[in-house]
Amino acid sequence: AVILWRATGMNVHIFESVPGMGAGFAAHFIMVFKNKDPWLMERIPQPKKIAAGFGAILLIIIPTEVYYLYNEPSQAEIIDSDSMWNLTVEFEPHFEEQVINIGDGSTESFQFSIPADAVGVSFHLNYSESNEGGIGSQCDNVESSYDDTNVPSEFRVMWNLQNITGQNCGENLLGGIATWNGFVQTNTYENHQITIAELTVEKDAGEIIFDVKVDVNRAFITNGDSGEEITLMMRYNTLVSYDLTEAE
């Protein structure tokens, strides 16, 4: 009975001594009644008294075990919060890119949907002077502004989320958002639990909008330049798995 109780995992909730002792008593009385030992039969109480005795015992055991079942300490309560642990995390990167040809003096909107399972998102704006024809070329002025009204509040970390303005040909990091603030691989159990909670927080999907305006510049007055092709990319990570082990 004890082996079966442990094999099924029930010992986590109710001590295996309970079914073990019960099975032992049951086997003992079965053998007594089967062999009809006269000496023991005279000393064994009547079945009604035995049943009453078992009932009284159960009235004590069952409430105790039920209380333990619902009040047993969790692993977090047993572990020292200041003990050192190692946390390793695996992320899966995802990319989304939008390209819009924006005319001189015009503004266009880039709208990105943020998945509910994203834990960190970054944004990049890229352009070059590609549309100017004539003698030489001059980088156009690009101005961006973001609207994060519909970004879920669980993205509590805003790292360098910014707007740009001026002549910025090339790649421009517009910053990003995240549910977590990074972590040190070896840290206290308590700090790692905070990080895990931030990485696994439940949230709704959201969106962010970038409005981008282009004002052309011409290297020579007779050059032609009708606008610029703007590329805006969103990169986001989703959590694949994490592993928390005690530091040696």
Score class of each variant (00 low, 15 high):
residue 131 N to V: 02
residue 81 S to Y: 00
residue 156 R to G: 09
residue 228 E to V: 03
residue 77 E to T: 09
residue 230 I to N: 08
residue 132 E to A: 10
residue 190 E to F: 07
residue 64 T to G: 05
residue 4 L to C: 08
residue 120 G to K: 13
residue 248 E to M: 09
residue 177 I to Q: 10
residue 73 P to V: 04
residue 197 A to M: 08
residue 69 L to Y: 06
residue 174 L to H: 10
residue 9 G to V: 08
residue 164 I to H: 11
residue 1 A to N: 10
residue 27 A to C: 05
residue 170 G to T: 14
residue 238 T to W: 02
residue 39 W to D: 10
residue 87 L to Y: 11
residue 28 H to G: 11
residue 105 G to A: 06
residue 49 K to M: 08
residue 131 N to Q: 14
residue 90 E to Q: 06
residue 103 G to K: 12
residue 185 Q to M: 13
residue 37 D to V: 04
residue 159 W to K: 12
residue 47 P to H: 05
residue 149 T to Q: 15
residue 138 Q to G: 05
residue 154 E to I: 00
residue 15 F to D: 10
residue 202 E to I: 05
residue 180 W to Y: 15
residue 9 G to H: 01
residue 187 N to G: 12
residue 143 E to D: 12
residue 102 I to H: 06
residue 75 Q to F: 03
residue 58 L to S: 10
residue 194 I to K: 12
residue 134 G to A: 06
residue 229 E to V: 08
residue 181 N to E: 15
residue 118 A to M: 02
residue 93 P to Q: 01
residue 210 F to I: 02
residue 58 L to C: 07
residue 209 I to Y: 13
residue 20 G to W: 04
residue 63 P to S: 07
residue 231 T to W: 01
residue 25 F to C: 10
residue 88 T to K: 07
residue 162 Q to R: 15
residue 161 L to Q: 10
residue 26 A to M: 05
residue 139 C to S: 15
residue 77 E to R: 09
residue 176 G to T: 07
residue 108 E to V: 00
residue 162 Q to M: 14
residue 171 E to L: 15
residue 217 N to P: 02
residue 125 L to R: 07
residue 183 F to L: 03
residue 137 S to L: 04
residue 50 I to D: 00
residue 241 S to M: 04
residue 181 N to W: 08
residue 124 H to F: 14
residue 176 G to E: 14
residue 14 I to R: 03
residue 192 H to I: 13
residue 243 D to T: 12
residue 6 R to A: 07
residue 143 E to Q: 14
residue 91 F to C: 04
residue 90 E to K: 09
residue 169 C to G: 15
residue 154 E to K: 09
residue 98 Q to N: 05
residue 29 F to H: 09
residue 227 G to Y: 09
